[in-house]
Design a protein around this nucleic acid. Structure first.
Length: 592
RNA sequence: GCUGGUGUAGCUCAAUGGACAGAGCAACUCCCUUCUAAGGAGUAGGUUGGAGGUUCGAUUCCUCUCACCAGUGCCA
């Protein structure tokens, strides 16, 4: 089936080529309002300055173009020229109906190939062992998984990887905190029998103590710095043992979280494995002048100066990232390497990428950093009561708890899907780069722009379809091909509510591609929400299973035809929502 | 101080330089004998922080200014 958007562009290009020698950029956009058509272009406005002698104004030019266009685009019902010079395209019902058949009959509808066989490495989540997996990590992993799926949907060969900071000052702080505990040994053996969550909490508390002491006491600060060096150098066997134990606890705990969130990594990288190689890379480029020694440290002077090797002679995060890029590429010859972190690292990555440009120019070209904003809690006061940070686990459990009181009959499995979906959706529905305020009330709600609302809408579609399956033993929803169904009918007219759903449905593949290209899941969220609203309106106003008898000129013909069409539409909406939610990393329960 | 980001309805947020700046909460009206009312329809709510500029056209781009957040040589 023809891609109508491409058809429009090609036709326009042909016409314009006849009129002007050069090629022009043609933009086809989706109007915000259906009253302006299914597609629209501002090309007459943008190129008018070249035609000032031939035409009075952009509207004139647009009319001229439109006259020539009419014959070339049989898929359109109407092409109109409006006010300043827009050309609006209205697709014919016949075309829309063909499209619905396509969606309902193909499992892979919407799948793109813009990244076909491109190798992409995507690093995201990056929690630090010994520290809590906090809500920032939750947003990171949610966004990362969504990007991964969006890119895979465009045909990418994608590796999800996770870079975890198992050495460094933060680890030293936690270890210091642990060492302050008097009966540490017995506590540890005690905890070994306890659930992972408790162990992880124990570490989190130790970190909090270490961090506090680091700030408040010079003596503690010095000790922590010593611990840091000992870990880097593997000097102290007892300390190493403690480090390994704690590290293991953290990683087990993280593993649980990844599983719960539906992310599976291809490869884990650790700071401990890139620290030495990182140092070597920096030192080997010292002579070339890329780096220089200053006050005992090795620094890089880029956009601003950053330290790559400290005067204590261990690699900083900066140096490690250079080695990481190299090792990543050895593992997987990527065409593109994407790193997702919070906004606070923007400046950091600017400089690291500058340094990488000098050290590994080929890799630097392939590496991009994408960031996102902070997560704050709207109902956040209650969390500070515990004194520690708000963890990802806590957020999900709390969501589940609240959901349970609201929907008593919901079974455990569905509860989990909805709770995780609610939290994830709240991380995705806002534009990526802005700081957000997480609200339980909004995210759990089935009203409004929320994960559960979409899940509920999907469940509704399945509920209707299930009814059909119960009625007949095995019903395959068969939709008569539109060409036949509407043949011989004059001015077939769909119901308003049907048409709105239909007109929205056809844009799914464009939306998913754009969401991937721009790393903008919120565009997909907004689209799915819009679709759900329009479907719910349709559901409310139009009987699906028992259409009124007197639908004389419905393009799907008699009662049976109309019923089949509406079932097909319902089926298609279900497919699109389910696929859309999958791309967001959210599960779609059949019943709610 | 410097660099970057943000500022849109009471609240939380949308809006590839486009059409009358849109949603959802909250407020107020309606709609269940019928496929999930866990839903739907509607009303009200705005000088897009402020001042200039570029453009056929600015929430979007540029300059200035105010407020808040983040980053800013030995953390990650």
């Amino acid at each position: 089936m023809k891609d109508i958007k491409k058809e429009i562009v090609n036709s326009l290009r042909e016409i314009l080529k006849e009129e002007i020698s050069g090629d022009v950029e043609i933009e086809i956009s989706r109007p915000q309002d259906f009253s302006h058509g299914d597609y629209s272009t501002n090309v007459a406005l943008t190129i008018f300055h070249k035609f000032k002698e031939k035409f009075k104004n952009p509207v004139d030019l647009a009319s001229f173009i439109t006259n020539k266009l009419q014959k070339k685009l049989p898929e359109t019902d109407k092409i109109e020229v409006l006010k300043p010079g827009f050309i609006n395209f209205f697709l014919s019902e016949k075309y829309l109906l063909q499209k619905i058949d396509q969606i309902a009959s193909s499992k892979n509808y919407g799948k793109g190939d813009s990244l076909k066989s491109k190798k992409i490495m995507l690093e995201f989540a990056d929690p630090n062992p010994f520290k809590e997996f906090h809500i920032g990590h939750l947003r990171n992993i949610t966004l990362g998984e969504c990007f991964a799926r969006l890119l895979e949907y465009q045909g990418a060969d994608l590796w999800r990887v996770n870079y975890q900071g198992d050495v460094g000052l933060h680890v030293a702080r936690a270890l210091y905190g642990l060492l302050q505990i008097s009966n540490l040994k017995s506590q540890i053996s005690n905890l070994q029998k306890k659930p992972i969550g408790e162990r992880s909490k124990f570490l989190g508390d130790a970190y909090a103590r270490g961090a506090k002491d680091y700030e408040e006491s010079d003596k503690a600060k010095k000790e922590i710095q010593e611990i840091n060096l000992k870990i880097y150098r593997h000097q102290d066997p007892n300390l190493n043992k403690l480090w390994e134990e704690g590290r293991g606890w953290s990683l087990d705990h993280f593993e649980d979280i990844y599983k719960r969130l539906g992310t599976k990594y291809k490869r884990y990288y650790f700071e401990s494995e890139v620290a030495e190689p990182g140092k070597e890379i920096v030192l080997s480029h010292l002579r070339g002048g890329t780096f220089e020694r200053h006050e005992g440290a090795v620094v890089f002077r880029g956009d601003h100066t950053r330290v790559f090797i400290t005067k204590e002679d261990y690699a900083t995060y900066e140096a490690k990232d250079l080695a990481l890029a190299k090792i990543k590429f050895e593992d997987f010859k990527y065409d593109k390497s994407i790193i997702i972190t919070a906004n606070e690292q923007i400046e950091y990555f600017k400089v690291v990428l500058e340094a990488m440009k000098k050290v590994f120019p080929e890799l630097a070209k392939k590496t991009i950093h994408e960031s996102f904003g902070f997560v704050n809690l709207k109902e956040g006061k209650m969390s500070s009561r515990s004194g520690s940070v708000v963890t990802g686990e806590w957020l999900m459990s709390e969501a589940k708890k609240r959901l349970k009181t609201q929907f008593e009959k919901m079974d455990e499995e569905t509860l989990e899907k909805v709770a995780v979906g609610a939290v994830k959706y709240s991380m995705l529905k806002f534009s990526r780069t802005s700081d957000i305020l997480f609200s339980f009330d909004e995210s759990i709600s089935l009203e409004g722009n929320s994960g559960p609302y979409l899940q509920y809408t999907y469940a509704r579609t399945q509920s209707v379809l299930a009814k059909v399956k119960r009625q007949k033993s095995k019903v395959k929803i068969k939709i008569p091909t539109s060409a036949k169904a509407s043949a011989g009918r004059q001015n077939p007219k769909l119901e308003k509510e049907e048409l709105l759903v239909l007109r929205l449905l056809i844009h799914f593949s464009e939306i998913t591609r754009e969401a991937g290209e721009n790393f903008a899941p919120n565009t997909l969220c907004n689209y799915l929400f819009d679709l759900s609203q329009k479907f719910n309106n349709f559901y409310q106003k139009v009987p699906i299973l028992n259409p009124e008898v007197s639908i004389g000129n419905h393009p799907r013909g008699g009662r049976e035809g109309v019923r089949n069409f509406r079932l097909g539409l319902t089926f298609a909406v279900g497919q699109i929502i389910k696929t859309g939610l999958y791309l967001l990393g959210i599960k779609s329960p059949n019943k709610m």
